[in-house]
Design a binder for these strands. Structure first.
Length: 649
RNA sequence: GCCGGAGUAGCUCAGGGGUAGAGCGCAUCCUUGGUAAGGAUGAGGUCACGAGUUCAAUUCUCGUCUUCGGCUCCA
């Protein structure tokens, strides 16, 4: 008797070894149709593999990551089969799954290059092969046999992979005419794959090392239903519409100019307005939390960055030093603000009573990012960090950390960022050489972060080995409406710079002590934050951030004067208002201004002019009825105040 | 930086060895209108830049720059 325990702890008994598929069938036919893979005592198996011992299992369908992975992994094999049939002699690297789909790294025979046109041919072939419903069969093989097999195929990539595997653990998967070295698991047969889209071709170095030959990487995605592919493609279209590069151009927020240089954003008036509103908001919050605003230059003596250690780390990847008429004098565009802030700390001696010192600056930094890495506003060569450094006593660390978390909460609330994850990055104790500072301090800092998060009720994920070389950190990742994850805010503990800059305070014991530094940037950088904000809101910013909060639309030119009066009144009431006095019909003005994403449209004609009112329309929501001017102003003021309540409470 | 696409009007894009087209936007005029596109006329382009092939290049070839998708690197 074999006892199979299901996730709900119910137990099913089978007289003989049983496959995942058979178990699913014993539960329901529907499940048998949907199931893609099975976990057996935590290990993911093929559905067709016999379970010959008592086990805890879980059946995975398309709704589970494990199910999708088996499906896409099999799809990668199917693609490889199609490519091998179309281009005999192709060598194969690796073909794993990714977040959305899969890829396979291949090396085509001779000088053959794959072009976009070829993708369609491969898709066709894949569909043809999928329809054959070939069983995907697992086979255990000795290392020697495996080597011989791929040697006969002349595939040095697979041989390299095999050479690193242990004998007795090597498995092959076969279907149709194709055999691959693979750990699995796979779906039972290729017929499950109904809809196929190969999405792109890219170059990729073998094993991710630029010293190795470059392979051709083919990306694709597949689905068990045609309809799912259609929906996926529609979702991609939706994502394109939200792209901050597109919206930024459309709304005239920012631009790039070849004449100025790659990766150097130009903030247009409306983008600058948006950015300044964000900065002013954060400045107010920071003031409330006891920060002092400072200002430092854009360049600094190269020795400053040698002291800080940034020269070693960024020097070769950065803009080259600026020389001066003086012999041997060199300056660097600053890659970081912290060295300057350390020097500010050193301007005068500090008593333990002065701490914490909190220094904030919207500091613009320059880093020579690789040209291929530049991307809209999310990765640029000159950007402004909403940087601040907190110099505190070790006993203040946790408290200060908690206060920074509070600031981040206020910001997230003001921008309705609800779906975020917080990641604690700790050092990897196995590689102490990667980190500087003594382990005792590291322990204290890591503990302080963990406790601060707990006390703030922050749900976190912990990643070991992801810490910066100088200290552990807490990062905030925001998911946009399409589920893509972006890293924004960061809080980092640093014992390194106080050491390097020899920072001190006089303790109550009259001795000199080293302060602890916290680096923090709730937005991360203004550029990236605005990019994410654009994608999150699709350009429909919350009222408090809209460059134009209301637009007055006169029904005809006869009411332009009244419209101007309305606009003047609202502007005096601190509501950013403009007038659309173009010679157009009201329907046209409504359409154009809706598309400009202005939150409130105020229609004024004969009735409104007589009664000193406005007819209010909310962007995306339509007619809201007629209101007194003062009533409308109050409505907006309250809405803004409500959005910024974190600041005022 | 590497691999592969792309660069035509302000924007989105079509075209193609004989010096260019659409829609939107813009300008002027008509229209003076009540909740998502009123009408007419017109102005805009060294077809990214440089070289080569050719009687002739925006079109073909090469290089450069920029940009897009990846890779690598990285806050």
């Amino acid at each position: 008797m074999i006892q199979i325990t299901l996730p709900d702890n119910s137990v099913r008994e089978f007289a003989e070894p049983v496959t995942g598929l058979e178990i699913a069938r014993s539960i329901s036919n529907r499940l048998a149709k949907d199931v893609l893979s099975v976990s057996v005592d935590g290990e993911i198996w093929d559905l067709t593999r016999k379970i010959d011992h008592d086990a805890k299992i879980k059946l995975h369908t398309w709704d589970d990551r494990e199910g999708k992975e088996a499906f896409w992994h099999s799809s990668a094999h199917l693609m490889a089969e199609a490519i091998e049939q179309l281009f005999p002699g192709t060598k194969f690297g690796i073909g794993p799954t990714v977040d959305a789909g899969f890829y396979y790294d291949i090396s085509l025979p001779g000088e053959k290059q794959l072009a976009e046109k070829d993708l369609e041919k491969i898709e066709q072939k894949m569909i043809e092969l999928a329809r054959q419903k070939n069983d995907i069969v697992r086979e255990e093989i000795s290392k020697k046999e495996a080597m011989q097999l791929f040697n006969s195929k002349g595939d040095e990539f697979k041989q390299e992979l095999i050479s690193e595997l242990e004998d007795g653990t090597i498995t092959l998967y076969k279907h149709g005419t194709f055999t691959d070295l693979c750990r699995g698991p796979h779906i039972p047969n290729t017929g499950y794959i109904k809809a196929i889209k190969l999405t792109s071709i890219a170059g990729a170095y073998w094993r991710g090392d630029e010293k190795n030959p470059m392979l051709t990487r083919v990306y694709g995605i597949t689905f068990p239903k045609q309809k799912m592919l259609t929906e996926y493609l529609e979702m991609l279209e939706e994502a394109k519409k939200r792209d901050h590069r597109k919206i930024g151009k459309e709304m005239e927020l920012f631009a790039f100019s070849e004449a100025v240089g790659q990766g150097l954003p130009l903030w247009l008036p409306k983008g600058a307005q948006l950015r300044m509103l964000l900065e002013d908001f954060l400045k107010k919050v920071q003031k409330k939390y006891g920060y002092d605003q400072v200002i430092t230059p854009h360049i600094g003596d190269v020795n400053l960055y040698k002291t800080s250690g940034h020269y070693d780390k960024y020097g070769k990847d950065s803009f080259q030093p600026i020389t001066t008429p003086a012999e041997g004098e060199e300056y660097l565009l600053k890659p970081m603000n912290c060295p300057h802030h350390c020097e500010i700390y050193k301007v005068k001696p500090h008593s333990y009573k002065d701490l914490p010192v909190r220094m904030a600056e919207f500091g613009t930094v320059y880093r020579y990012e690789q040209s291929g890495e530049l991307h809209g506003l999310t990765r640029v060569r000159g950007f402004t960090q909403d940087d601040a450094h907190i110099f505190c006593r070790p006993d203040q660390l946790k408290d200060e950390f908690k206060k920074v978390i509070d600031i981040i909460f206020i910001i997230f609330k003001a921008l309705s960022f609800e779906d975020y994850t917080a990641q604690i990055s700790l050092r990897d104790p196995k590689t102490p050489e990667k980190y500087i500072g003594n382990p005792e301090n590291w322990d204290k800092a890591e503990q302080a972060i963990i406790e601060a998060c707990e006390e703030k009720g922050l749900k976190t994920v912990t990643e070991t080995g992801e810490a910066a070389f100088y200290g552990p950190k807490l990062d905030f990742m925001i998911k946009d409406a399409l589920g893509r994850s972006w890293q924004l805010g960061t809080i980092q503990v640093d014992y390194n710079l106080p050491e390097r800059f020899n920072l001190e305070y006089i303790g109550s014991d009259d001795n000199r002590h080293k302060p602890v530094m916290i680096h923090r940037a709730p937005f991360g950088s203004m550029e990236r934050f605005v990019a994410v904000l654009i994608e999150h809101t699709a350009g429909k910013f919350p009222l408090w951030l809209a460059a134009e909060q209301a637009v007055v639309l006169p029904i005809s030119e006869k009411y332009n004067d009244y419209a101007q009066k309305v606009s003047d009144f609202l502007n005096i009431s601190d509501i950013r208002t403009v007038v659309d006095d173009r010679n157009e019909k009201i329907g046209r003005k409504i359409r154009d201004n809706e598309l400009k994403r202005i939150p409130y449209l105020l229609i004024v004609g004969e009735k409104e002019a007589e009664s000193e009112t406005v007819s209010v329309r909310r962007q995306g929501e339509g007619d809201k009825g007629v209101m007194e001017l003062s009533e409308f102003a109050e409505l907006l003021t309250n809405e803004v105040r409500n959005q910024l309540s974190g600041l005022y409470n």
